[in-house]
Design a protein around this nucleic acid. Structure first.
Lengths: 154, 154
DNA sequence: TGCGGACATGCAATATCCTTTCACTTTGAT
DNA sequence: ATCAAAGTGAAAGGATATTGCATGTCCGCA
């Protein structure tokens, strides 16, 4: 089986990335193949992991998560155990949208969604600086979301 | 009409956020209402903007976007025109996933996906530092994606 | 050149699901 | 208690997804 994708597959991926609810018949029309073929291709894209999942994007401010904060984190020690503990803790905190180990002045970058600044301050005091091995954090409040989670271009 | 959401609405939102392809019948079963009611509620969640859209999440490494980079940007001047020009330029660059105006040591934070480091270096030299009004950038290569774009908790 | 196997495609039939209609029930204000 | 507005469930119709099958295509190999 060819592991490569052709132009039709890429079109399907782009269509589903733009609107994951697009029906099979509609996709078939747009990429100029029969519904059956389109269905089989789409299914393969799921099975082979090209499409990780399809998720509804909830309006953050409508569910009281209107505030976005970026946080740089520096750990006490740079041991594997220290990193592991911190990462495990991050995965368990539901308000952390992104957690990335980076090279540079920080060890980790976090992207956090909360209701408002007051909410973040509680959270920062109660949970963030209490995370395992945290030496220092630097907070960047987001004042304007110019682009958030744009679709992948490929 | 009540602008508020009840427990059933929240359940629907959570289900669709976890899997946007979940059929109406399946949702109805899980939230214990009839298919008709569930359909109407879901439709309302779309129409009233609680669900912004439904998007397939494409595996980045499968489409040659395996490298993630965070970039802090400082502008020359802090004028509205300067900000506006920079933001417009960012919106036009497809590899920029996030672009946020922040308070702190940087003016903007960018989240960028490219194929690899070499690709980013070209991009940085050709396009990033050429963005309007950029005085300085600081690059943080992501070495490990611990959590990326986690579903919103509410 | 000819042959055979693996694969992809389209058509058509089947099964499944969505979507609307209608009558009934609940809710809330007077 | 009464009325109006909104919500609810069951059923029917229409649209859609999904599968089986025959045909066509490509590639390796003799």
């Amino acid at each position: 089986m060819s592991a490569e994708l052709d132009k039709i597959d890429y079109k399907i991926l782009r269509l589903l990335q733009q609107d994951g609810r697009t029906g099979n018949a509609e996709i078939a029309k747009r990429v100029n193949v029969s519904a059956a073929t389109c269905h089989r291709r789409t299914q393969r894209l799921f099975e082979d992991g090209y499409i990780q999942n399809v998720r509804a994007q909830i309006a953050p401010d409508k569910v009281d998560r209107g505030a976005l904060v970026m946080v740089g984190v520096v750990l006490d020690r740079s041991t594997p155990e220290s990193f592991g503990a911190f990462e495990a803790a991050c995965r368990a905190l539901p308000f952390i949208l992104d957690c990335h180990l980076v090279a540079g002045d920080f060890d980790y970058f976090l992207k956090i969604r909360v209701r408002d600044m007051a909410d973040f301050n509680h959270l920062h005091g109660d949970q963030l600086i209490a995370l395992p091995g945290v030496r220092q954090t630097r907070t960047f409040f987001v004042m304007k979301e110019v682009v958030d989670n744009a679709p992948l271009a490929f």
